[in-house]
Simulated assay, not measured.
Amino acid sequence: MKYYAVLLPMANQEKSERFRPQHLSFLESMRQAKHVKANGKFTDGSGGLVIYRAASFEECESFVKQDPYIQNGARNYEIHEWDAVWAE
């Protein structure tokens, strides 16, 4: 498995607030399925970051496109394969 850092820059503040519960529920289901390692919002309000686990860029993008934030135009996305080094 590879790791992908997915930036979710703000596209529409009102939609971001409206679809936040669905977005968080989606992330929780992805975390339970072991596809999300970490997630969080930026404190400056500019968006957030999700760390996905996926076999390929294409698989990661397919996960991202299921996010209610993306489906409803609340956020844009930018995917970067990430060569993570984890502290144990």
Rank of each mutant, 00 (worst) to 15 (best):
A84H: 08
E88A: 09
E78K: 14
A55W: 09
N76Y: 14
E17V: 09
F63H: 13
Q22C: 05
N76K: 15
D67V: 01
F19Q: 00
E14W: 08
R53F: 06
S25Q: 15
E78N: 07
Y52L: 14
R20Y: 02
F26C: 06
Q22I: 06
W82G: 03
Y77G: 01
F57G: 03
P68E: 01
E58Y: 08
F26V: 05
D44A: 12
R53L: 12
G47L: 08
N12I: 03
V50P: 02
L8R: 00
D83I: 12
N39Y: 13
G40H: 14
H35L: 11
N39K: 14
L49V: 13
N12E: 08
I51S: 06
K34A: 12
K41F: 10
S29R: 15
A87Q: 05
E17Q: 12
K34H: 10
N39G: 06
Q66I: 07
E58T: 10
A33V: 04
C60A: 14
F57N: 07
L7C: 04
V64G: 03
F26T: 03
A5W: 13
K37V: 04
F19M: 00
R18P: 01
S16D: 01
L8W: 00
M1H: 10
D67F: 00
K65P: 04
Y3W: 13
E88D: 10
K2Q: 12
R31E: 06
S56Q: 13
Y77Q: 03
A11Y: 03
E61H: 08
H23A: 01
D83A: 13
W82Y: 14
S16P: 01
A33G: 04
Q32H: 10
N12V: 03
S25G: 09
D83C: 06
E78A: 10
Y4F: 15
Q22K: 15
